[in-house]
Design a protein around this nucleic acid. Structure first.
Length: 566
RNA sequence: GCGCCCUUAGCUCAGCCGGAUAGAGCAACGGAUUUCUAAUCCGUGGGUCGCAGGUUCGAGUCCUGCAGGGCGCGCCA
């Protein structure tokens, strides 16, 4: 089956050709915002009238006369200045829902052509805790990967770890002089942070600062002792990160951190110099993109060291070589826009043609509208935040389902609590700075994960009470208005999923799922299922099942699970 | 100072390439339940889409200017 919008676009294209116009590949068609205007609308008559200097309503009349859509529903209507409104017929919707139910993909088409896409996201820093700042990158990147894969693209997810920076001078100094081994065993990252902070404070003394620098230089020169300490920091940090990733159900194909590229930087710089794209400035080697900024892109620092500009460029070339991707997406916060513009500018200059995207996002704010912090002023650690989400979600579960075993309740609380945190991110436009509020994201009302999960649970409860097994009917016949509305909403899934990648907006899918759940709730209120006579009962069960599958699949694309009860 | 982003209902936010009378949730008020999980649904009130111009048949959406807010701005990442 084809998504409704694609079908209408196709028919529209044929009609435009028939009346002698040259249509776009995908003439504008969209679902209407108001049911009075039908289910779908197009304004092509007005846009073409403008080009051809014709009367828009007259042109709309010619288009409608040439349109062959009688299998989809009643004849389209012309309204207002030249809108063409389509209404889907009950029999078309019935066929469409039955077809989507037979399809494992629920009607979502496979993208063509399939692309190879590298998604760079999460990227926490070694020896620092993962905090709320990392959650958006992690969750957004994971969702984009899930959606891209579902659409048939070849995806490589890469966690570009911050495992090679100047902070290691202080960390190693701290390790050698300040380390508490018991604390390291108990809370590795916390202890690494502590020694870093103390070393940082001690570095106010120039002698300590010098020793920190020496440790860094030794590390960079391959000193075995310092390499061992560094490796130890990496593995202990990774253990903690892995727990968070496991909790979030986030997985990477590669975790090639900055250190992986370290050995390549000197040769890369030499190659860039040969290309003549670098200039010397105050002892540093820089690339200027004056149209972007008066500030340079520093490839090699005046002390001969390399910053992350060099690393990111080396990373880009490594990826080109290894995977020959069609696109690389960097899921990194909005403050780094200039960095990526400069990086991409230099890459273009060097002949890179593939699609490079900085998928930027806004900050997470506390309820005081400032960057989210703990009471003591630290950034909020991610594992604590996730644990709190689970604990908070556990309370209503225990209240509603006290008879469930504790382990089962915990599992449900994880699905609900973690889902709520993820959904709060994803349901919002990615560039919006969003205000973190436990009460809002865990609310059972409004556009939240628990609301959607509850709608799913209600649809599933029906099947538990159903005597015998349910066989999806070959044909459906809708009788109630609420059934038709639910069918119309279900059929839109096929258009909602591909739209996510258009502008990297998972909130499009979230909003769709929310509206779908609201429509389902109306159906649920108005249409008794189990007590309905056949064949109505089978039709309603079919709608419940399809709703459940769409919700499960849709939330799954957002990395969010659904419980069977809650 | 320069650059990027933002400003939509009391609050938190949707609003794709310009399309019809700008939508949700929360909060407020009024209804519906011997439940297929009411963790729900229905209804009411609430708007100069920051301000001022411009382009257009049509602007929350595009352009210019201004105001307010956030972020970034040479050797951190």
């Amino acid at each position: 089956m084809a998504p409704v919008v694609s079908t209408l676009q196709e028919r529209l294209r044929d009609a435009l050709v028939r009346i002698g116009l040259e249509p776009d590949e995908r003439p504008q068609v969209s679902a209407t915002t108001d049911p009075r205007f039908g289910d779908y609308q197009t304004n092509v008559a007005m846009t073409y009238a403008k080009r051809a200097k014709q009367n828009p309503r007259a042109l709309a009349g010619r288009i409608v006369a040439a349109l062959q859509v009688s299998d989809l529903g009643p004849a389209p209507e012309i309204a207002g200045p030249g809108f063409i409104n389509f209404r889907l017929g009950a029999d078309f919707l019935a066929r469409q829902v039955a077809e989507m139910a037979r399809d494992e993909r629920l009607g979502v088409p496979v993208a063509s052509p399939a692309k190879t896409i590298i998604i760079d996201f999460s990227s926490p820093n070694i020896a620092k805790p993962m905090h709320v700042g990392h959650i958006r990158s992690t969750i957004l990147g994971d969702t984009l990967a899930r959606v891209s894969r579902f659409l048939g693209h070849q995806v490589v997810t890469d966690n570009h770890l911050g495992d090679w920076g100047t902070q290691f001078g202080k960390v190693i100094y701290g390790w050698k002089n300040l380390l508490d081994h018991d604390a390291l065993e108990q809370h590795p990252v916390a202890e690494l942070v502590r020694i870093y902070r103390e070393a940082d404070a001690a570095a106010a003394d120039p002698r300590v600062l010098d020793r920190c620098r020496e440790e860094l230089v030794k590390l960079q020169q391959g000193d075995p002792e310092n390499l061992r300490i560094w490796q130890e920091c990496v593995s202990r940090s990774m253990q903690e990160f892995s727990r968070v990733y496991q909790l979030l159900d986030v997985h990477f194909d590669e975790q090639l951190g900055e250190s992986f590229y370290h050995a390549r930087l000197a040769a890369l710089t030499a190659a860039l110099q040969k290309e003549g794209v670098l200039e010397e400035s105050d002892g540093a080697l820089v690339y200027w993109a004056h149209s972007l900024s008066d500030d340079p892109f520093i490839i090699r620092k005046s002390d001969g060291g390399f910053g992350y500009a060099a690393t990111d460029l080396a990373t880009l070339f490594y990826r080109l070589e290894r995977w020959q991707p069609d696109a690389i997406w960097y899921v990194v916060g909005a403050p780094q826009q200039l960095h990526f513009k400069q990086l991409f500018s230099l890459a273009r200059r060097l002949g890179v043609k593939i699609d490079l995207e900085h998928v930027a996002f806004g900050s997470i704010l506390g309820e005081d509208r400032k960057l989210m912090r703990t009471r003591s002023g630290d950034s909020v650690s991610l594992d604590e935040l996730l644990e709190e989400a689970i604990e908070r979600a556990a309370a209503p579960v225990a209240e509603k389902n006290p008879d469930l075993p504790a382990a089962e309740r915990r599992r449900i609380a994880e699905i609900v609590g973690l889902g709520a945190v993820k959904y709060a991110e994803l349901s919002q436009h990615r560039l919006t700075d969003y205000v973190f509020s436990w009460d809002k994201l865990l609310s059972l009302h409004g556009n939240t994960a628990p609301y959607l999960q509850n709608a799913y649970v209600r649809s599933r409860a029906i099947f538990r009470k159903l005597p015998g097994t349910f066989a999806f009917p070959d044909t459906l016949a809708f009788t109630a208005e609420a059934e038709l509305k639910l069918a119309k909403a279900l059929v839109q899934f096929a258009d909602a999923v591909p739209a996510i990648l258009d502008g990297f907006r998972p909130n499009v899918l979230a909003n769709y799922l929310y509206e779908l759940a609201a429509v389902f709730h109306v159906f649920y209120e108005e249409c008794p299922v189990l007590s309905a006579p056949e064949p109505q009962r089978a039709v309603r069960l079919a709608l419940c099942e399809t709703f459940g599958r769409v919700t499960r699949a849709g939330l799954g694309l957002l990395g969010i699970g659904v419980p069977e009860r809650m």
